[in-house]
Design a protein around this nucleic acid. Structure first.
Lengths: 165, 165
DNA sequence: CCCTTTTCACCTAGGTGGTAAGAT
DNA sequence: ATCTTACCACCTAGGTGAAAAGGG
């Protein structure tokens, strides 16, 4: 399924005439598994993390594009899809349920990203920068754990309009 | 509206590791306007063509891509849209109704197409080739002129399923 | 007991020709 | 008379949480 709400970023400081790829990956925050304690409304550690899954990369569909193009618009990752199926063959990002994750945005100069692939690690080096925002850390679930998150989803996601009062 | 049926082409002979743009434009076949004579089931000349409209280019959304990528798939132009509105600002291809047109496929080496635009003429030169297929000539209408064409549209287009018997 | 999977009604978004009204 | 426009019911395609069923 899609991630909702989606990550949206603005970028500045690019070379307007240079081509770039923009990509996102999602990395574990720690080595723990979590459970939600309803009466205290808190996520609590519930053991160690499941064994790691094949890392995947979401390449923004506008890639590659010029610095000018990227800087002119808000860059939205609303088409990124998540799955808990470790055998997924649709190129979705694979995560474990009940774990904490941090999305990362990668800006990759064209000449460093020409063999970029959803299933290969992101190259590192001079023409590649990564950005992460702690306020975007989230915990994965297969069913929502409290009414506040359900309300948020229904109220904000146009596709859930059928569940509004 | 979309063109239906859509143009679909296969390409061979590209350099697998070279990047290319693929584009389509649609040019007048002659300088005439037509009318359909129902009792003889024929298109007849009905005067001279209307004054030319701003030429537009449809850049295939997979562009740019490597020769290898283009040659591996059937290239479909099903998302190309036509309009008779000369003031169109959606980047659609502008045509006159009741005129004859020929679609053309353009293969443009990356280094020759970096300022390609829906509203700019296609560059010419060594790294650019054009292909057209006489069997794809068509006449534009705002309403279908006979039952055979209506039947074809309804039978073949999944979006018209509601009109099948 | 707690978590996951499957199916579903209900949406968004947008591509069809029919049809009646409008335009020239 | 002939062509065009605007609106519509009816589709395709796919994104929602609810709820029931499944699993360890």
């Amino acid at each position: 399924r899609r991630m909702f709400p989606a990550m949206r970023v603005k970028i500045s400081g690019l070379d307007p005439h240079q081509q770039y790829y923009i990509a996102m990956d999602i990395v574990p925050v720690d080595n723990k598994r979590y459970r939600y304690v309803y009466h205290s409304s808190k996520w609590m550690v519930a053991g160690n993390a499941d064994s790691p899954v094949p890392p995947r990369v979401y390449i923004h569909p506008d890639s590659p594009a010029s610095g000018e193009t990227w800087m002119r618009q808000v860059i939205s990752f609303d088409k990124l899809k998540l799955t808990n199926n470790e055998l997924d063959d649709q190129g979705h990002i694979i995560l474990h349920s009940m774990h904490k994750y941090q999305p990362r945005v990668h800006v990759i100069r064209k000449d460093c990203g020409d063999d970029l692939s959803p299933v290969k690690p992101i190259p590192s080096g001079d023409g590649v920068k990564a950005f992460s925002f702690p306020e975007t850390v989230f915990t994965t679930v297969t069913a929502y754990q409290n009414q506040q998150i359900t309300r948020l989803k229904i109220d904000r996601n146009p596709f859930a309009k059928g569940f509004r009062d």
